[in-house]
Computed example of a mutant assay.
Amino acid sequence: MKLSIYYSESTDPSFNQAIEESLLKHADDNHIIAFLWQNQRSVNIGKDQNPWRVCKPKQLKQDNINIVRRHTIGGAVYQDLTHTNIALIGSNNYLTKDIIQKILLGTFDPLNIEVAISDKLECLIDNKKVSNTALSENNHYLFFHSTIRVNTSLTDISQYMNSRYSILNHKDLERAYTSINQHTRPLEHNELCRYISDSIQEALELDAENTIILNNQHPDWVEFSANFYRLKSWDWNYGQSPSFIESLQTAFSWGNVDLRLNIDAGVINNVYYDAPTAYHNMMNDFSQTAIGYPFNAKSMISIVCGLLLKHSEHYDELMEVSEWLQQEIA
């Protein structure tokens, strides 16, 4: 049995997720793979999740924080450089839940922190989660991913994740989540990686072959570039969302406007509106023109520009609609 541990120097979440996905292709019955990394500020969402529902795309865009859709199901997780990520990949004949639990417990031994491991393989300190996990099995292989909070600001989590569709608020987070540094001396990413690596080797009783992946230097793997550019794309991160309805309302000097947009696979497929009678022709053309456009701020510019000549008498009103929608939609 061979054990390989990869360490990424990159903090680009799309780059690191492309590494993780590529490593899944490298697993075989005689090879256990571990991958350790951290991401710059980002929101990682599950394969089947809707970013407009689980986080705040508009706020994230304003703060230059990317949304990255994972290849696995699971919840949305805010990450920054106060988190450490670990992935384990291998045959489930050798890499078992019991082994993973042993690895997680061993990681915390040098810190003298009493940690419990939940049935979902989440790390708990004083019954508060210090990690979020994902676990899947496919073709006799086990894939485990954990994001460990080292010194995370719960304010940042609530700022970007506590949308109007979420029950989370800051007090809920304080009751549910904690970070390692709240229970021990200050801990850095590289030190935690060393503890994880040592625990992996001890639990598996194997010596590791270590590989450092340089900052944004693309590995020479056939599937890596395709994974990386897909993970950077709007079509993957937003366009893979399930169907939903977005309702928007505002009050202009010329009247109130209500919009209800049906979104399917990230694309507008129907628009219902309520607006002052004098603007029905303008809004009717808007609702028809919008069909087929991606649901993003850039599309709103294109839609309105296409209406300016036909409805030149409402130039100011159309520009107000455009500015409003660009502010509302990521």
Rank of each mutant, 00 (worst) to 15 (best):
Q49K: 13
N162E: 13
P13Y: 09
D63S: 14
L248E: 05
K61L: 13
Q327Y: 04
E191T: 15
S8V: 05
H71N: 15
W37D: 03
G239D: 05
G292Q: 07
N50L: 01
L142F: 02
N270D: 13
S241V: 09
E20K: 05
H311M: 06
I100Y: 02
D285R: 06
S241R: 09
A134G: 15
N93L: 11
G266L: 00
I196V: 06
S146P: 03
S10N: 05
H314N: 12
S136G: 06
A116K: 12
I65Q: 00
P219I: 02
S241M: 13
I245M: 08
D316T: 12
D198V: 02
N256T: 08
F35E: 02
C305H: 14
N92E: 12
F224G: 03
F286Y: 15
F295A: 02
L309P: 05
L187C: 07
N64Y: 10
L308C: 10
E202V: 01
D48T: 13
C193T: 13
V130H: 02
S197W: 01
I125L: 05
Y141I: 05
A203E: 00
F143L: 04
V115E: 05
M319V: 08
D198T: 06
V257K: 01
Y160R: 05
Y195E: 00
L111N: 08
R53M: 14
M300E: 07
Q327E: 11
F244E: 06
A330P: 01
I103E: 00
K25E: 15
N169L: 09
N210G: 01
L142G: 03
N50I: 04
E328H: 10
I196W: 03
Y160S: 04
G292N: 09
I99M: 04
Y273K: 07
N64G: 07
E209G: 03
T211Y: 09
L135Q: 03
N237M: 05
V54M: 05
Q201V: 04
T277F: 04
N112M: 03
R260S: 09
H189I: 14
Y229P: 00
I33E: 01
S42P: 07
D29C: 07
I45Q: 08
N181A: 02
N92F: 03
N270P: 09
Q59V: 07
I196K: 01
L60Y: 03
H71G: 14
N256A: 06
P13G: 12
D274I: 03
H71Y: 15
S312C: 11
K47A: 07
L309G: 10
L261I: 10
A18F: 07
R230M: 09
Y160T: 02
L60C: 02
D207P: 09
H26I: 02
E191P: 08
Q79A: 06
N39S: 07
T250W: 12
N85Q: 14
G90L: 05
H218C: 14
S197R: 01
N190I: 08
L135G: 01
D126F: 00
D119Y: 08
E188I: 10
N256I: 03
E209F: 12
T152I: 06
Q240N: 14
K58W: 08
L187Y: 12
K102S: 15
D126R: 01
I301T: 14
L308F: 09
Y293S: 08
Y279C: 00
N256C: 06
T11G: 10
